[in-house]
Simulated scan of single mutants.
Amino acid sequence: MLLAAPTFAWAASSCVDADVAGHTAIEAQHRLQHAPKSKDGDDETLSAQQRTATRDFKDALVRAIDTRLACSDAHAEPAALQRALEASLGVVKTPPPANASGGFGQAVSVEITRGADPKALVFVRAGYGIPCGDDNLLVAYAWDGATWRRVLRWQSDDYAKISGAFGDTFQYETLPGGQIAVAHGGPWCSSRWRNFGLDVFAPANGAQRQRKLFHLDHSYAADFDAADDGLTLKARPDGVEVRTTISPLDADLIQRKVIYRYRVSGDTVERIQPIALNGRDFVDEWLVVDDAHARNWSDPDAADGLLKARHALVSGVKDENGPVLNYGPVRACSSGKDRYQVEIDLQSRKSDHADARYGVIHQERNGFTMLALSDKADPTCKGANLMPR
């Protein structure tokens, strides 16, 4: 949730005010912890009282952070700020056991970061436990010569299910153009398949409010054995990149790696290659993106025909759960350097007859280009199967 508020600045306040605000946040935390549970009787659903208490607790956390920054000078040191904020919020440094049953509002945590540049923003992530995961919010502050101004507040919308929380993984980066990218997962109790979100913001500047420039929402496979829970966010010289694991069209493959790389220039966020780690995964992604992206990643001279063939393929094999297909051999082609053919075996919803299409791709320095999509195999593509199942 992007709270579209103007840039906030405060007159210097005493740190007594910050301690009072911290105590108020603790009281809001206790109300959340003791709010009546949902009548549904499951940990994944919030009652109306829990939803209200969640909103109030987040507001109180932000007020406590605002007030702490208001009594800090331009040379505020992140570690000292974090210690002070943790003390005022009653943060317990010893985490609960891994098998503990977490409730709403447990295990509050705070993380404060600031880049090496003297003009760098101060970021504060505040989070707390919920059943089967956690929820987090992010605020950022800029020094205006007299005080710290809040230039970003980012948190989830109100949610009725815990999957609406911003948790599992929570990562943020400042991009070279001053934009802010944030990625998060969505907790759940019964499956490793979750949803993640990626947002790119322009922070508030003077009278201009903070703005959301881009949003991506997609399912992914959480990897709880990885430090990043199976999703990585990285700033790049020209923008931002997320790498994670998603479900392919071929259900038998179960999962595949995907790259969401974006060029960010001013307010424009544009997806660019690479989009996949290999040719088969490129074809899979090419089949599911929108027409504009599919055209961008196709041979310009054949793009019109390719998009028509793509539409016919996808619409001809869809069932209520999506396209039904399996990938066959991936073979090198002798008709050109770095040229490959990916077999796509189709199961029509109108018959039991298995059909096939053949995608021919060219590997580029930083991705692939779709050259052809036909119902006939290219006779020059007779190499060994490079991706046996």
Rank of each mutant, 00 (worst) to 15 (best):
Gly316Ser: 15
Phe8Ser: 05
Phe196Tyr: 12
Gly115Val: 01
Ala227Arg: 13
Lys212Ser: 06
Glu364Asn: 08
Thr94Gly: 01
Gln106Pro: 00
Leu69Ala: 08
Thr7Val: 13
Asp375Asn: 15
Ile180Arg: 00
Val317Met: 08
Asp158Thr: 13
Val360Ser: 00
Pro203Ser: 06
Asp355Leu: 14
Ser13Tyr: 05
Gln49Pro: 01
Tyr262Gly: 00
Val324Met: 10
Leu69Pro: 02
Leu213Tyr: 04
Leu85Gly: 11
Phe104Glu: 06
Val20Lys: 04
Gly22Asn: 09
Glu285Gly: 01
Val240Asn: 03
Asp117Thr: 03
Trp148Lys: 03
Ser101Trp: 07
Glu173Lys: 15
Asp281Met: 01
Trp193Gln: 07
Ala372Arg: 09
Gly103Phe: 09
Phe166Thr: 02
Val242Asp: 01
Phe282Ile: 06
Arg280Met: 04
Ala4Thr: 13
Ala48Tyr: 07
Val314Tyr: 03
Asp229Glu: 13
Asp345Glu: 15
Glu27Ser: 15
Ile246Ser: 06
His293Asp: 08
Asp229Gln: 12
Leu249His: 10
Val264Leu: 07
Cys71Trp: 08
Ala302His: 13
His34Thr: 15
Leu69Ile: 12
Pro248Tyr: 04
Glu270His: 02
Ala227Lys: 13
Gln106Lys: 14
Arg349Asp: 10
Lys212Ile: 01
Ala276Gly: 02
Pro95Gln: 11
Val151Asp: 03
Trp154Asn: 07
Val264Arg: 02
Arg125Lys: 14
Ala146Gln: 15
Ala9Gly: 14
Ser38Cys: 04
Ser315Gly: 01
Arg125Ala: 09
Gln33Gly: 07
Ala126Glu: 11
Asp17Leu: 06
Leu81Thr: 07
Gly206Leu: 04
Asp59Asn: 14
Val314Leu: 11
Ile246Tyr: 07
Tyr327Gln: 01
Val342Gln: 12
Pro6Trp: 11
Met1Tyr: 06
Asp267Asn: 05
Ala64Trp: 15
Val20Trp: 02
Arg125Ser: 05
Gly177Gln: 07
Pro36Glu: 10
Asp73Met: 07
Asp223Met: 09
Gln82His: 10
Gly129Ser: 15
Ser14Asn: 05
Lys308Asp: 15
Phe57Ser: 04
Ala79Leu: 11
Ala4Cys: 01
Gly186Ile: 03
Gln273Gly: 03
Pro6Phe: 09
Gln29Gly: 08
Leu306Ile: 12
Asp229Ile: 02
Ser334Thr: 14
Pro36Ser: 11
Ser156His: 08
Val242Thr: 11
Asn321Lys: 12
Ser374Leu: 03
Val108Leu: 15
Asp229Phe: 07
Gly305Val: 12
Phe196Gly: 05
Leu46Ala: 11
Val264Thr: 05
Asp228Trp: 12
Ser348Thr: 10
Arg51Trp: 06
Val240Gln: 02
Pro248Cys: 04
Ala126Arg: 05
Ile246Gln: 08
Val110Met: 13
Pro118Lys: 05
Phe196Leu: 08
Leu306Val: 11
His34Tyr: 13
Lys119Ile: 02
Gln341Pro: 00
Arg192Gly: 01
His353Ala: 09
Ala79Met: 13
Lys234Asn: 00
Val20Ser: 04
Arg295Tyr: 01
Phe8Ala: 10
Asn205Gly: 00
Ala160Asn: 14
Leu121Gly: 02
Arg310Pro: 05
Asp225Trp: 06
Thr147Lys: 01
